[in-house]
Simulated assay, not measured.
Amino acid sequence: MHRGLKSLLLAAPLGIAALAGCSAPADPQVTFYSHGDAIEVAPARFCDATGEQCSPPPADPVGELRVPEKAPLQISVPGDVAATPWQVAYIYRGTNGEEIDGRTPVFTPDTRHSYTLRVPEDGTRLEHVEVQQYSAVLTAGAEGGVDFGISGTWVLDPR
């Protein structure tokens, strides 16, 4: 093999690796799916595990998706979210007009990449959903114990 070509072939992977290292990783996207439609949502807030280095929020931080009554909402998180503690918080409106909020248990790291949210089938309407990724920051809890900070939040307002 010609010596110049061999040098070029050996240097090419290093150049590709250097170029790949120059691009900043994109903030993780969460996918919401219901009734045949899906939307990928950028984080409304996304910080490192210490809560210090935060990405600027997108211009429109709230995703919208049609979620018919009685239809489940499927939520898929990428590996870097699933590798941390996370949960789903939600608000729905009961048939009497009462606003009801709830949350799933906290999913431990590397145990789930998805969750299906189901509201009661009595005409209750889902109004707001947040996927919350926990950080490593601890604060004193209002009722004792400790609270974990939120490092990432993805928001969906169903229509």
Rank of each mutant, 00 (worst) to 15 (best):
R112I: 02
V81G: 01
A44L: 03
H35W: 11
A82D: 04
E40G: 03
D27E: 09
T124I: 00
P28G: 05
Q74D: 14
A82P: 05
A38H: 14
Y90S: 03
E98A: 13
G94M: 05
T116V: 10
K70N: 12
L138K: 15
D101T: 13
R112T: 02
C54R: 09
D27V: 08
E98Q: 13
R112Y: 13
A24G: 05
L9A: 04
P13C: 04
L73G: 01
G141D: 03
A17F: 14
L5F: 14
V137K: 08
D80V: 11
S76P: 02
L8Q: 05
G4M: 12
A12T: 12
A11R: 04
Y92D: 01
A44S: 07
H113W: 04
D157N: 14
C22R: 11
G63S: 09
H2D: 13
A89Y: 06
P13Q: 03
G141N: 09
E99K: 14
A18P: 08
G36A: 10
R103C: 08
E69Q: 06
V129W: 01
V146A: 15
T50N: 13
I100Q: 03
P72M: 08
G141A: 06
A12Q: 05
F107I: 06
D60I: 08
E143W: 15
V146C: 07
G141C: 07
L9H: 03
F107H: 11
L8A: 14
L14W: 15
A17S: 10
P120D: 07
G97Q: 03
G94Y: 04
G152L: 06
G123T: 05
F148D: 10
L10M: 10
F148N: 15
P105H: 05
G15E: 02
I75C: 02
Q133Y: 02
A142P: 14
T31P: 00
T50P: 05
V41A: 01
A38C: 07
T111W: 07
V137H: 04
G51E: 02
T111L: 07
T104G: 11
F107W: 13
S151P: 04
D48M: 02
A71Y: 09
R112C: 00
G144R: 12
A140G: 10
T116W: 04
E40N: 12
A17V: 05
T153Q: 15
T139R: 15
P58L: 11
E52G: 09
D60E: 15
M1H: 09
D48Y: 07
F46P: 00
A89T: 13
S135C: 12
A26L: 06
L9G: 01
L65P: 01
G144Y: 07
Q74I: 06
A42Y: 09
V67G: 00
E143Y: 15
G36N: 09
Q87T: 11
P85L: 07
C54T: 04
D101I: 06
E121S: 10
R66L: 09
D48L: 08
S7K: 09
V131Q: 00
D110I: 10
K6H: 09
T116N: 03
S151A: 13
L14A: 10
R118P: 02
Y115F: 14
T139C: 15
G51C: 06
A83K: 12
P25S: 06
L156T: 00
P61C: 14
K6F: 15
T104Y: 14
R3W: 12
A17G: 13
P85I: 06
I91H: 08
D48K: 02
A59G: 09
P85Q: 13
A17D: 01
V155W: 03
P120E: 04
R112K: 10
W86V: 04
F32E: 00
